[in-house]
């Protein structure tokens, strides 16, 4: 059995993931400590999204152990909602509740999952919306917001559950260029908080350099490199990573 270290927020041990015959994640071994900020990069189809979605159970794994906040996701006895309460996720396409107003998007899960008293819930929701600069949009419906605004609401919604870890799955890929800066700045502020564990899939190399403690490079479902940020950007160890960084930066 895998050793359960309290310092580890997320731990992959010999994880294998298949879509039918397609081998999506190959022998993943990875540990992310509490409070760490890790950026996950790699070409499209490399398995980054699959890996990050596996962490809160959106993608089941077929083999190995995936231990998140002390619970093994591959153990059928694990209540996945216990993990999801503590691990938030921000999606590429926001996934806001289309039938709920902005503030309801933020308040819903704390109300019905964590049973936070209404008054406290609303106060905190407004505080979070203020933090992402959207307090004045509290009563709006998601359809009335721009992409950047939607993503900021989605971040506030995740934070409302007071998570230990946040997963960002290409949070700026669907945004217009002028919107990206605001969203990245907010993510950076969250990541700086030393208690928060962040795992970020992104193509923004400058952002990665500024925010990450570590960089993980994936290709073809494998982790090819796992280095300190400064080391990675100085000189990636693998040729694939070197090629990828050159391509993205020249772009």
């Amino acid at each position: 059995m895998v050793e359960n270290n309290q310092d580890n927020m997320i731990q992959f041990v010999d994880v294998e993931k298949y879509y039918g015959h397609f081998h999506a994640l190959k022998n993943i071994n990875l540990t992310i400590k509490r409070g760490e900020t890790v950026v996950l990069i790699g070409p499209s189809g490399s398995g980054k999204s699959t890996l990050i979605r596996a962490i809160n159970g959106l993608e089941p794994i077929q083999e190995g152990h995936l231990i998140v906040n002390g619970y093994d996701l591959h153990d059928p006895k694990t209540d996945i909602n216990k993990i999801r309460k503590r691990v938030g996720m921000v999606f590429q396409h926001f996934n806001l509740y289309n039938n709920k107003s902005v503030i309801e998007n933020v308040m819903l899960a704390p109300r019905i999952v964590s049973h936070i008293p209404e008054e406290e819930n609303e106060k905190y929701a407004l505080e979070l919306l203020d933090r992402v600069g959207l307090k004045d949009k509290a009563g709006s419906m998601p359809s009335m917001l721009s992409g950047g605004q939607k993503q900021r609401v989605a971040i506030a919604r995740s934070l409302a559950m007071k998570p230990s870890a946040l997963l960002f799955d290409e949070p700026t890929s669907a945004l217009d260029p002028e919107m990206i800066g605001d969203v990245l700045r907010i993510i950076q502020n969250i990541a700086k908080d030393s208690d928060m564990t962040s795992l970020i899939v992104t193509h923004e190399m400058n952002f990665a350099q500024n925010v990450a403690n570590r960089v993980i490079f994936m290709a073809d479902g494998e982790v090819l490199e796992d280095s300190k940020t400064s080391d990675f950007f100085k000189k990636p160890k693998s040729v694939r990573a070197q090629q990828f960084v050159d391509q993205v930066q020249n772009h």
């Binding site: 938030g88 999606f91 999952v113 919604r157």
Partner: peptide, 21 residues
């Protein structure tokens, strides 16, 4: 499907997701 994923990742149970979202 994004609506379901958003809700489940937010901690809602499958029944809550279905009923409310």
């Amino acid at each position: 499907i994004g609506q379901t994923e958003g809700a489940r990742a937010n901690g809602l149970s499958s029944w809550q997701t279905l009923r409310i979202i």
